[in-house]
Write a protein that binds this DNA or RNA. Structure first.
Lengths: 147, 147
DNA sequence: ATAGATGCAAACTCTTTGCAGGTCG
DNA sequence: CGACCTGCAAAGAGTTTGCATCTAT
């Protein structure tokens, strides 16, 4: 029986339980930095819990994101999930499609500049980089990874 | 008969035609800064060409993006299109969901910094801002706009 | 005990594709 | 004529939902 788990208290505060499917789903997303899709999470969870349903995976991913234990990210081809909820930016490799985490530039001046120009209230910002990752710079013409 | 139109030469160079549906689709996307969905474009084009099909709208949006006359953008709830193909950033209003264009900060140093840290080749970067737009700062609790 | 969670299947939304007919150059 | 396009309908992919059953607290 689990007594301590990152985010457990958050769930309990909202009357939510840490069931076995839920915990496995959270573990899978947290264990990778590949920004997995729901389908990927489903495959992985099934290894340990073969009877889990895709609906359960979707329900939990959405719910865990709403609770702030996961981050969601729109992408061509579907939503992706990220166990790293701290501030960080992303690098998308145009050759293989992989999305890497990169340290965030938490420059306050960046937000202030936009706020000054638009009059909007800037609460957050995130930068997306595009290019070729280290692996793809070496192996030219490699086929896209399974996402 | 149109003899001059931004992007016409690009299309012709690839053996593509500027048909009436295609031109209307392009015009609709270019006429707004609301980063419209395919469904929005479809509705608008139908006003002038009632028999157009949604398939034609999708085919053309995708093709025009491939030709570089439009930009595509993944978003929860579907793809969005942008007639502004120049470098610019986006501000997403968390209250009303609208996406505004903001001038890009084309700082070379930003890319160099990431390249140095990761060893990746950075070809492009884009920043996403999140917050409350001017309209929403004034009217609290307004309902989300139709996207 | 009981609110919350699950599996299954059906439904839904967004997007793509096959095809026969139409159009531009 | 020949390549390109279109509308229509059907198919695909990703995601959500209704419901009876099960389970964590």
């Amino acid at each position: 029986m689990i007594t301590n788990y990152q985010g457990l208290d958050t769930l309990r505060a909202h009357g939510l339980r840490l069931t076995r499917p839920r915990q496995l789903i959270l573990d899978v997303v947290r264990a990778t930095d590949a920004h997995p899709t729901a389908a990927f999470v489903y495959q992985r969870v099934r290894r340990r819990l073969p009877r889990v349903s895709l609906a359960t995976v979707y329900r939990n991913l959405r719910m865990l994101a709403a609770e702030g234990l996961l981050a969601e990210r729109a992408d061509a081809g579907g939503m992706r999930f990220d166990g790293n909820t701290g501030p960080h930016d992303h690098f998308t490799c145009l050759a293989c499609g992989r999305i890497y985490d990169v340290p965030a530039r938490a420059e306050r001046s960046v937000r202030r500049r936009i706020a000054a120009r638009t009059g909007f209230e800037v609460l957050d910002h995130r930068t997306e980089y595009y290019g070729r990752c280290g692996a793809c710079r070496r192996q030219r013409g490699r086929s896209p990874v399974t996402r």
